[in-house]
Amino acid sequence: MSSIEAEGVPAREGSVRVVLVDDHAIFRSGLKADLDSRISVVGEAGTVEQAIAVIAQTRPDVVLLDVHLPGGLGGGGREVIAGSIALLGTTRFLALSVSDAAEDVVAVIRAGARGYVTKTISGAEITDAVMRVAGGDAVFSPRLAGFVLDAFGTSPADIADDELDRLSARELEVMRLIARGYSYKEVAKELFISIKTVETHVSAVLRKLQLSSRHELTKWAAERRLL
C-alpha cells in the first residue's frame, strides 16, 4: 500500500520532517530506527515544554506525539497541541500511545491531532501513518474507529440530524471496516471506491469527532470522564 500513501506528500527535500515527542528515550531511538528513509527526524522532545519549543523552532510537517507526557500543567499531548495552536495549519499531529483508554484517545483527537495509533504497531505501519498524516489525511486505528462508532452510534444519519452529529451511511461503513482491521486500500477495494474517497470519508469523520457537540458524544465522553 506504500505507493499510494506517498500521494500528496509535500516534496520538501523528498522527505517528511518529523519531531518525536515521547518521554522514553529508548522508545524514541527505537522508533527512529523503525522509520524508513522517507522520513527525517528533525527534533526530539521529552516533556511538554521541550516539545512546544522544539516544534516552534523546527516547524516540522508531522509531530509524533505521545499522549502521556511529563511537564507542563499535566495535560500531556493535549497541552502540546494547545501550545502549538498557531502551527496547526502546517504542522500535523499524530498521537501515539500505549493507552487504550477512550478518554486519552478522544481527548487528543479533539485537541487537534489528525490520527491515533498505538505504540505496538510496526515500523512500516507507523511510517505509513506518518506519510498519510503529512498528506493531510486522518489515521484511524481499529480501536479509534471503534470508539467513534461507540460514540456516534451505529445507525446512519437522518436528514433532520445536525450534519456534525451523525455519521453518514458511507462513513459508517468505512469506520466499521477500519474497526474490523481493514487497511484503507482494503476498505477501498471492499466498497468499490478509490483510496482518495476513503481518505475523504475518514477526514470527514475526524472533523465531526473534533467539532461535534452532539449530546450523545458528550454523554458518552462524560461517562468516561472526558471533556
Binding site: S155, A179, R180, G181
Partner: peptide, 17 residues
C-alpha cells in the same frame, strides 16, 4: 488478529480477520 464485535438491538456481529 483483528476481532471486531458490534452488538446492536437487531443483531450481534463478530468479525475475525
Amino acid at each position: 488478529v483483528s476481532v471486531y464485535v458490534e452488538a446492536s438491538d437487531k443483531e450481534v456481529e463478530v468479525f475475525v480477520k
